[in-house]
Amino acid sequence: MHLSDATWTDADDVDTDLALLPVGSTEQHGPHAPLGTDWLNAEAVADAGAAAYDGEVVVAPPISVGVSEEHRQFTGTLWVSEDTFRRYVRETVASLAHHGWNRVVIVNGHGGNVAALREVAGTITRHDEAYAVPFTWFEAVGDHRSDMGHAGPLETAFLRHTRPDLVREDEIEAAREGASDGWGEWVSYTNLAYDSAEFTENGVVGDPTDGDEERGEELLELATQSLVKLLSAVESRDVSRPDRE
């Protein structure tokens, strides 16, 4: 059940403790993909996972602004601090738990959120009346994972499958020409760059022409399979905390 589409009485009838919370960002994704790419993709994976799961799952509305200051030079990018993001996620999970949905998988679509989500999920699990785990969809797609850039082949393929109306196909070639080959400027295993504008002309990392609709379909299937497996583990897990010893 998607909370955005439900009434409170619909929600009151749901008999489950499982919830999915999509999170992403509103940030540049090159000249060809929308600013909402990350939260749109996270929501699509959450919806597909809930539909495929053998049991009831509540899908919360997406958190659409994340930790994205690294894209601040590109117009339209919105961001909050890690502290603000963690607090918002924690309090959203707390409100889900208040209604009994206290086993929460946070479905993430933005790389910049990963560290903050792992930390806040640990805090929730240790100190709140809920159990939370983060799931980043593009880390759960098998060998495709190695092609993850930014607005590159994976995200472009995914959008071409789920939201083709939002992909500016007439800008794909420009996106490819202005892209960088990798994320950052690396010396001695250290990334010297903090902002994406330091190493990519138009915000793209990777070649979006390598991401067709067929690949997007496979990505969604793989991410969905991974999420369903995770939901099953979260539902059956003993989430009591170990003794201090």
Rank of each mutant, 00 (worst) to 15 (best):
T190V: 15
R87G: 05
T92K: 02
D13P: 01
G142K: 08
D165M: 10
A50M: 04
A50Q: 03
T209L: 12
E245Y: 07
P208W: 12
D181G: 15
G203P: 08
V93P: 02
V89A: 02
V204Y: 05
T92V: 01
H110I: 02
V205P: 07
P208T: 03
A97D: 08
T224F: 09
L78Y: 11
A94Q: 14
V133A: 05
V133H: 02
D13R: 14
A193R: 11
H2P: 01
W39H: 09
V120Q: 00
G100C: 05
S240F: 01
E177I: 03
G182F: 09
V23C: 02
S146P: 01
R86M: 03
V89M: 08
D17S: 11
F138T: 02
H29R: 12
A42E: 00
A140P: 06
W79F: 10
G111P: 07
D238P: 06
V57W: 10
A151M: 09
G109M: 11
A193M: 10
Y194G: 10
A193V: 05
A132K: 04
E155S: 06
A48S: 12
R241L: 15
G149T: 07
A11Y: 13
G142A: 12
R168N: 03
A175T: 06
E169L: 05
G182S: 14
E91Y: 14
D10F: 09
E198G: 11
L166E: 15
L21G: 01
A151L: 08
D54S: 14
S226Q: 04
V120D: 00
V114H: 12
P164W: 15
S25W: 07
D38Y: 07
V228D: 14
F158R: 00
D238T: 06
L20T: 01
L154Y: 05
N191R: 12
S64H: 14
E82R: 12
A60K: 05
P31D: 04
R168H: 13
A60R: 05
T37K: 13
V205N: 09
T224G: 08
A174K: 12
G100E: 03
A6E: 05
L3T: 04
R244N: 04
G211Q: 09
L222Q: 10
D38F: 08
V187N: 03
W39Y: 14
F199K: 04
L192N: 06
T190A: 15
G49M: 12
W186I: 13
V59Q: 00
K229Q: 14
R176D: 08
V167Q: 04
Y194A: 13
D210V: 02
Y53I: 00
Q225N: 15
A46I: 04
L96F: 02
L220H: 01
R72H: 14
E43S: 13
Y88F: 15
A121K: 04
V167I: 06
S240W: 02
N191H: 04
T200W: 07
A197R: 14
